[in-house]
Nucleic acid binder design. Structure first.
Length: 575
RNA sequence: GGUUCCGUAGCUCAGUUGGAUAGAGCAACAGCCUUCUAAGCUGUGGGUCGCGCGUUCGAAUCGCGCCGGAAUCACCA
């Protein structure tokens, strides 16, 4: 595919301007308005060095840069030099590229096989998956796919919250009030019941908390009885989580959670001591980070047991030694910003220079509305929306709509899952990660406008047009036997331009750890396709015109499916 | 109180690493199915880009100061 910025930079280049080709390339921008061309080169900055009015510079550049057949027009407007690309040339270029690449259009090899670890989802064992957990899960999955698509060698880690004092609590509760049959029949709800009961009782009798801490100490010391119970809780929980992961189509390469690092910590505690970083404070061992404005990072509690930071240090070093990563990405809520800053600082003080390659990718908080108030989700107080309920409701609503519309030749069972779950994922990925939001049923169940179903619908619509085409037409476009001159209308051109940008958008989304960049672009593509669909009749009598338009439809369908795939969403043929 | 993040249309949000007249969707209203899927398309109304000062040829975007909201600040993760 032609790189038009390169092409333009080479046209503009002139030693008298005093700019390298690469500098010129970086200055080229895309005008806000179509009528001002496809690419623009602003000359303001040159005014100083050339000691000439920017308009005059633009005029000169425009004069010398014309003449290439790829451009239909090059003109200056005030200080801008505007480039108009020849539309037929452009459409032919884009269609050929997407047709050749097919499923791999949008992928690139900028990662050059370097190892990238993505840690995401990481739920706490023994607690239900709620709507807050979807963020790390879905954003992390999209980032994994984006890194995979840009040529990195990826490892997906589910850093399970399967350790810590909470398991001391759970074991104490189970021993006091537990029942094996209840646990087997509905594990998560039963475990959750123990957990909430523990907290209620501990309010009255604080000695329970001490008992829980002691129990965790025994668990960490490897006492058989505690370890057996903990194993049981972990396995039962994992089985339930995998049901949700299956619905979302999400997999992991490793489930090495916090417990995995339990026996790997003493080495680092010793190392911290040896390096003179560890200080005793009120019976606990800390690293003092006051000088960096980061407070104190607690490494071991006064009873000697470990903490979050300790386990994360062990995990990071283990991963570096085991995977030798180029980059390790942590998709974890912004609530833990301080924790990650402390942890990185400790690694830095320990002399691990590669801590710079560890990236915390934070995301905003999901809260619930409670009357006029907005409240944080709380499993304990029952103020919680379960992810599985949201997914099931979205699927049911989709099936209802499909029945209303009398969908023909469609497996409603299958497609309603793809669309309903796709809607939930899509919504999660459509805003900037960092934004907080308040969960709303109306919003997740809205399938109009900038939504997953809208994009999927566009894909199904394109598929439908292709089904209505003749075999001879499809054969011709497969061979590339088309006349792109029929694709110079505004809406066809707009669509082609958006498709052209997909590979760079994928790279940008990965670089910025921001799947929403791709989601937004995908909505733009769907809008452009629908406009094209309405503006121009596709299956016209004129064979050449029909084939050119069909080629653009086929290419659009491929691109939409590829982009949905990168977000972890299915692209049904009919809906 | 310290630190970090957020503030753009009634609501939810984009805004291309400082550029040309600030854009979508939802909601409201008005149109478009005897041609390819109306989960669609077209149009109308709706803005002191939280406020102020500064840097610059140029600021929603960068700096500083306020105002408002959120998260977080040692034995949870």
């Amino acid at each position: 595919m032609t790189d038009f910025k390169d092409l333009i930079a080479n046209e503009i280049f002139d030693e008298a301007l005093g700019l390298e080709i690469e500098e010129i390339r970086n200055m080229i921008e895309i005008p806000a308005d179509e009528s001002m061309g496809d690419y623009a080169f602003p000359c303001f900055r040159l005014a100083k060095t050339l000691r000439k009015a920017p308009q005059m510079i633009a005029e000169d550049v425009a004069k010398s840069a014309g003449g290439n057949p790829a451009f239909s027009k090059v003109e200056n407007v005030n200080a801008y030099v505007n480039f108009f690309i020849d539309r037929a040339y452009f459409a032919a270029d884009v269609i050929k590229e997407v047709s050749d690449k097919g499923d791999s259009y949008g992928r690139s090899d900028v990662g050059n096989g370097k190892k990238v670890i993505v840690e995401y989802s990481s739920p706490n064992i023994a607690k239900p998956f709620h709507i807050g957990h979807i963020r790390s899960t879905v954003i992390g999955n999209a980032l994994y796919k984006l890194y995979d698509a840009t040529g990195y060698d990826t490892v997906r880690i589910n850093h399970l919250g399967d350790y810590g004092t909470q398991f001391g609590k759970m074991i104490v509760a189970y021993r006091k009030w537990g029942s094996e049959e209840k646990l087997a029949s509905d594990p998560i709800k039963t475990l959750l019941g123990y957990y909430t009961r523990f907290h209620d009782e501990a309010k009255k009798d604080p000695s329970l908390d001490d008992e829980a801490r002691e129990t965790f100490v025994r668990l960490e010391a490897g006492e058989t009885e505690e370890v057996e119970l903990w194993k049981k809780f972990r396995e039962l929980s994992l089985a339930e989580f995998s049901r949700v992961y299956d619905m979302l189509g999400i997999e992991f390469d490793s489930y090495a959670g916090e417990s995995f690092y339990s026996d790997k910590m003493p080495r680092f505690i010793q190392e911290l001591k040896d390096k003179g970083l560890l200080v005793e404070s009120q019976g606990a061992q800390i690293v003092d980070l006051e000088d960096y404005g980061l407070g104190a990072a607690m490494i071991t509690k006064s009873d000697g047991s470990s903490l979050y930071v300790t386990r994360d240090i062990a995990a990071a070093v283990y991963r570096k030694e085991h995977y030798d990563f180029y980059k390790c990405i942590y998709v974890v809520a912004s609530q833990q910003n301080l924790h990650f800053k402390q942890w990185k600082k400790v690694l830095e003080l320990m002399g691990y220079e590669w801590e710079k390659d560890c990236v915390h990718v934070p995301f905003g908080l999901v809260s619930l509305s409670d009357g006029d108030d907005v409240v944080m989700m709380s499993t304990r107080d029952g103020k919680v929306v379960f992810l599985e309920d949201v997914l099931n409701t979205a699927v049911a609503k989709t099936a209802e709509i499909m029945h209303e519309k009398n969908a023909q030749d469609v497996d409603i069972d299958e497609v309603s899952k793809e669309v309903g779950i796709g809607a939930v994922i899509f919504q999660e990925l459509s805003n900037n990660r960092i934004k907080d939001y308040v969960f709303s049923w109306d919003k997740v169940l809205n399938f109009d406008g900038e939504t997953g179903p809208y994009v999927q619908y566009t894909h199904a619509r394109a598929s439908s047009v292709l089904r209505n085409a003749d075999a001879a037409d499809l054969e011709a476009i497969a061979k590339g036997d088309i006349d792109a001159a029929y694709l110079s209308g505004d809406s066809a051109y707009m669509l082609a331009k958006l498709i052209y940008r997909v590979p760079e958008i994928v790279i940008e989304a990965a670089d910025k750890y921001e799947p929403s960049i791709l989601t937004r672009h995908l909505v733009d593509i769907a809008q452009a396709f629908n406009k094209f669909y309405h503006d121009e009749h596709i299956l016209v009598d004129d064979v050449n015109e029909k084939r050119a338009k069909l080629a653009l439809v086929a290419v659009s369908k491929t691109v939409i499916a590829n982009c949905l795939g990168l977000l972890g969403i299915k692209a049904p043929e009919r809906m």
